[in-house]
Design a protein around this nucleic acid. Structure first.
Length: 572
RNA sequence: GCGCCCGUAGCUCAACCGGAUAGAGCAACGGCCUUCUAAGCCGUAGGUUACAGGUUCGAGUCCUGUCGGGCGCACCA
C-alpha cells in the first residue's frame, strides 16, 4: 500500500523538469483522519534545494501524479504536505489477500543478507537470572523478526568455557564436594555459593565417591589474606592436588550448567543454531592466529611482560592486554578470534546483544576488527539495559555472586512464559525497565498479554459458535468485502494494512516492541468492533464478509504473537 | 574525573532515521452484560516533553551546556 503510493510519487518526481533524481522524502501514515491516509513531505524537502515555495512545488507534483484506482483524492495541506485519501476498496482488498497469504502477509522475501546474531552468552557459572531473560527474549524476538523480514539469521550462544571464572566455579564445586566428604573447608567470599553448587558437588560425590577427596590442610591451609589471591592460590592447589582429575571437576560444573541453561532457554522458546565454545578457539589455534594478525599488522607491543593491543589507534581509551604476564591469553583475545571467525564464515553482518554493563567493550572489539583489516561497520552491538524487578512497589534485590537472585526459571514459573516474553519485549532495549511481577502475573484486564490473547480466543469462539449454528464453515472466498463500510471495520482494516510497515520498521531498527504495540492496537480495534457489531448476522453475505475480516485479524494476531514467541490460544 | 544509556500524564511506557492538535495502558471518576467469552466496551479528567540556549519553514526527536538517574572505566569474564 505504502509502496504503491511511493511509486506514484517517484513517477511524478521524474516527470518534473529540473535535476534528475530528487530525494523521495518520507511517506508517512497520518495522525489525523482529516489528513487522509498517507502524507508526503517531498515538496517541503525539495523547497529548500530548489529555492521555491513548497506549496507551489506540491501543486506541480500533484499534477504529475499518475492515476491510481486506490487513490480517492489528493490534497495539499498545511505548509506543503501532500495528503492521499484512499478508496475503501484499497482496504477491503486486504481481507482476501491476508486470507490467501496467511502468515506470509507483510513478510519479506527470503534471500536477504546473512546475519549472525549472538545473544545471551551468559557465563555458565550459574543458572540464568532475570537479566539474562531480557536478553534472551529480546534477542530471540529480533531473530524472528529479521527472519520474517527476509534475512537469513543464524543465532549463536558463545560459551565462556575457558578462563578464570570457570576455574573459580571449579574450585567452588570442589570445596563443596570436600565438605560432603567431611573435610572442614571454607569457601572464600568470592567463590560461587548458590545452592546449585551443592547439587553439582553432590553429583560428583555420587559418581566418584571420595576419589577426589584431599586433605583440607593441603587445600585451604595458610591462604593469603587478599580475596583475589585466595582464589588464585586455590585454583593452583586444585590443579596440583587433583592433577588430571581437575578437568573432571572443571567439566562437571560446566556441563551441568550449560545443559541447564540450554534446557531453560528451550523451555522459554529460545533456541540457538550453534553453541560456540570459547575453548575451541584456543584449542584450534584461532586465538594465536588472530593475535598473529594483530602483531603482523603492527598493533601489538610488549610492556611489563604482557602483550598489548594498541586499540587507542582506533579511538579506544587505553590499550588492552591480549596476553598476560603469566602467558595466559585474556578473554578479550578469545573474543577477537571469535569475531574474526564469525566474519570469515561469510556473514554480511554481525549483531551482538550485550548487557549494558559491557558497553565499554564495544570500542575495543571494533578496534580489533579494524586492526585485522576488517570493516567494523559490519559489526553492531545492541545494548540491553537492566531489568529491575518489582513486586508491587517493592524492589527485588539481585546479586549473582552471592546466589541471591531471581532466576529466569523462577520468573517463568511465577508469571508464565507468555507474560514473561511479552513484558521483556514491551520496552525498547535501551530503556531501563521496571518489571512488575505482580502485574505480569495478574490474570486480569491489567495484563496486556491476556488482552491480546483474549482477542484471538474470542475470534476462535465466534467461529465455534458459527459452526454450531449453521454447521457450515461458510464460503468466505465468495464474500463481498465491499460490504465492510462501518467505521469500526475501516479502523480494523487500516490497522491490518500497517503490518508490513511495522514489521519492516521493527526489523531495520531491531525493535520488537513495535510489534507488541501494534498487536495491542490491533486487539483494541478487534474488541471495539466486537462490542459494537454482531458478526453472526442473518444476512449471509454480510456475515461472510465480517467473518472474513475477523479471520484475517485472527491470523495477523497469531502472526504477530509468533514473532514475539508468545502463544495464540484458541480458548482462555 | 572520563565514557555510554536514559529523563515525556500521578505510575509504567509509545511517538514510524525533523512534520500538522505529543498518544496508550494502569491508577481516579461516570456509564454498558435476557445478544458471538465483561480477561471486554464507551465516556471524563490528567502535559511548559527535566532545565537553559542554539540549528530551521517546523524540534519530544538534531547540537551545546546545566541538573537528575543507571552502568562502565582490570594482566575478571
Amino acid at each position: 500500500m505504502r509502496a504503491h503510493l511511493s511509486d506514484l510519487i517517484s513517477t511524478a518526481l521524474s516527470r518534473l523538469p529540473g535535476d534528475g533524481q530528487p530525494a523521495p522524502g518520507h511517506l508517512e501514515r497520518t495522525r489525523q483522519k482529516s489528513h487522509g491516509d498517507f502524507a508526503s513531505n517531498v515538496a517541503l524537502l525539495l523547497a529548500k534545494r530548489l529555492g521555491r515555495p513548497p506549496r507551489e512545488l506540491a501543486t506541480e507534483l500533484v499534477a504529475q501524479l499518475p492515476d491510481s484506482p486506490w487513490v480517492a483524492r489528493v490534497e495539499i495541506a498545511g505548509p506543503g504536505f501532500i495528503n492521499f485519501h484512499l478508496v475503501p476498496a484499497a482496504y477491503q482488498a486486504l481481507v482476501p489477500q491476508i486470507l490467501h497469504e496467511g502468515r506470509d502477509f507483510g513478510r519479506g522475501r527470503q534471500g536477504g543478507r546473512r546475519i549472525l546474531l549472538e545473544f545471551v552468552s551468559a557465563n555458565p557459572t550459574g543458572p540464568l537470572h532475570v537479566g539474562h531473560g531480557r536478553g534472551a527474549a529480546y534477542g530471540d524476538a529480533v531473530a524472528r523478526i529479521l527472519r520474517a523480514a527476509g534475512y537469513a539469521v543464524s543465532c549463536e550462544y558463545y560459551v565462556n568455557d575457558a578462563g578464570r571464572q570457570m576455574d573459580i566455579l571449579a574450585i567452588s564445586v570442589w570445596m563443596r564436594y570436600l565438605d560432603l566428604c567431611g573435610e572442614q573447608v571454607t569457601l572464600p567470599a568470592k567463590g560461587y555459593r548458590g545452592d546449585y553448587i551443592w547439587d553439582i558437588a553432590a553429583g560428583l560425590h555420587r559418581e566418584f565417591g571420595n576419589a577426589l577427596q584431599r586433605d583440607s590442610d593441603s587445600v585451604t591451609g595458610s591462604l593469603p589474606a587478599d580475596e583475589e589471591q585466595q582464589l588464585d592460590t586455590l585454583i593452583q592447589r586444585a590443579r596440583e592436588l587433583l592433577g588430571p582429575e581437575y578437568q573432571t571437576v572443571h567439566a562437571a560444573g560446566m556441563e551441568v550448567l550449560v545443559d541447564d541453561i540450554r534446557r531453560d532457554l528451550k523451555e522459554f522458546g529460545v533456541e540457538f543454531d550453534r553453541w560456540f565454545s570459547e575453548r575451541s578457539l584456543a584449542d584450534s589455534g584461532e586465538v594465536a592466529r588472530a593475535a598473529g594478525l594483530l602483531r603482523d599488522n603492527g598493533y601489538l607491543y610488549e610492556k611489563d611482560g604482557a602483550w598489548w593491543f594498541r586499540s587507542t589507534d582506533f579511538g579506544d581509551e587505553k590499550d588492552r592486554v591480549v596476553v598476560r604476564e603469566n602467558g595466559q591469553t585474556t578473554y578479550f583475545a578469545s573474543d577477537i578470534a571469535y569475531h574474526l571467525d564469525k566474519l570469515e564464515r561469510g556473514f554480511d553482518e554481525l549483531i551482538d546483544i550485550w548487557g549494558a554493563d559491557h558497553h565499554g567493550y564495544i570500542k575495543r572489539v571494533q578496534a580489533s576488527l579494524e586492526a585485522m583489516g576488517r570493516d567494523s561497520a559490519a559489526f553492531t552491538v545492541l545494548l540491553v539495559q537492566f531489568a529491575v524487578l518489582y513486586r508491587g512497589r517493592e524492589k527485588v534485590s539481585m546479586s549473582t555472586r552471592g546466589g541471591d537472585f531471581v532466576s529466569l526459571r523462577e520468573l517463568r514459573q511465577e508469571v508464565g512464559n507468555d507474560a514473561a516474553r511479552f513484558f521483556y519485549v514491551l520496552r525498547k532495549c535501551e530503556q531501563h525497565m521496571d518489571f512488575d511481577l505482580d502485574l505480569a502475573k495478574s490474570r486480569s484486564n491489567d495484563n496486556p498479554v491476556y488482552y491480546i490473547q483474549y482477542a484471538h480466543a474470542r475470534i476462535c469462539s465466534v467461529f465455534r459458535q458459527h459452526a454450531e449454528q449453521s454447521g457450515d464453515p461458510g464460503d468466505l472466498a465468495a464474500a463481498d468485502y465491499a460490504l465492510l463500510v462501518e467505521p469500526h471495520e475501516m479502523d480494523l482494516l487500516n490497522r491490518l494494512s500497517r503490518f508490513p510497515e511495522v514489521l519492516e520498521s521493527a526489523a531495520s531498527n531491531r525493535e520488537p516492541h513495535q510489534i507488541a504495540y501494534w498487536l495491542q492496537e490491533l486487539a483494541t480495534d478487534l474488541h471495539t468492533y466486537y462490542n459494537a457489531h454482531q458478526f453472526l448476522v442473518a444476512d449471509p453475505r454480510l456475515r461472510a464478509a465480517r467473518l472474513g475480516l475477523v479471520e484475517a485479524t485472527r491470523r495477523m494476531l497469531a502472526s504477530g504473537l509468533e514473532l514475539l514467541g508468545v502463544s495464540a490460544p484458541e480458548t482462555m
